[in-house]
């Protein structure tokens, strides 16, 4: 591959060299992920407190959730994590097509995840387990009031996660376009790496969400 002047790497004016710039970008992303982890931690903490307080009620309520569907979703999301990791590696080695393929697979799997999640919400809506917006609450297990608290957490936590999925997908789509254009290979490789970090975080949070909402009560 020949390097025309447009393909030479441009360092942002505040940095001395590309290495410094990459260090800064990477550290910035890691710090941002720390703030994201703390954002979720508040909701997880509240859930843990209530689990402790209403253990039996929460366990019973958790059994109404589609743990198998969500389990399949976990596999799908973790596979998308593999796809983005392969895309990172490919971009690093300058293999444009493979990188693009990995990114598109990640996006596709992410969309499948959201579709299944949407189906779950829909079936819970039909079963009367959406206890807000003046919806009737048709839960027939023990202590329906405390159980309502559980479903509130279920919708808040999975909703917060889904919102992060949407942001992550939007980022990946932009990165996919940049990879397709491939103006500057080294730069694209860094962009894929940083976006991949965010996607990995979204994956890991889902594992925690899945365990603490679907599995703990089983």
């Amino acid at each position: 591959m020949t390097r025309t002047p447009e393909h030479t790497v441009i360092v942002a004016h505040q940095f001395e060299n590309l290495e410094q710039q990459f260090d800064a970008d990477l550290l910035g992303m890691w710090l941002f992920l720390v703030t994201e982890a703390l954002l979720f931690s508040g909701a997880f903490l509240a859930l843990a407190v209530y689990y402790h307080q209403y253990h039996d009620t929460f366990s019973a309520a958790a059994r109404e959730l589609h743990w198998l569907l969500a389990g399949a979703n976990s596999v799908i999301l973790l596979t998308s994590g593999l796809a983005v990791a392969l895309a990172e590696q490919a971009a690093d080695q300058g293999r444009r097509r493979a990188a693009l393929l990995g990114l598109l697979a990640t996006i596709a799997l992410g969309l499948v995840f959201l579709a299944i999640k949407g189906y779950e919400y829909h079936s819970e809506y039909q079963a009367g387990l959406m206890p807000f917006l003046q919806q009737p609450f048709a839960y027939d297990g023990p202590n329906p009031h405390n159980a309502m608290l559980f479903y509130n957490f279920y919708f808040v936590l999975t909703g917060l996660h889904a919102a992060h999925m949407v942001i992550g997908l939007a980022v990946l789509m932009v990165i996919a376009v940049l990879t397709w254009r491939w103006r500057d290979g080294a730069r694209v490789a860094r962009q894929v790496r940083i976006a991949g970090l965010y996607w990995a975080f979204v994956d890991i949070v889902w594992v925690l969400v899945y365990c603490s909402l679907y599995l703990v009560g089983r």
Partner: peptide, 19 residues
């Protein structure tokens, strides 16, 4: 971020009635 999530929880409780 902990304040952010606390205010999110406060907001969903106030707006959607999600206790």
């Amino acid at each position: 971020p902990v304040l952010s999530v606390t205010l999110v929880l406060l907001a969903v409780e106030r707006v959607f009635g999600v206790g």
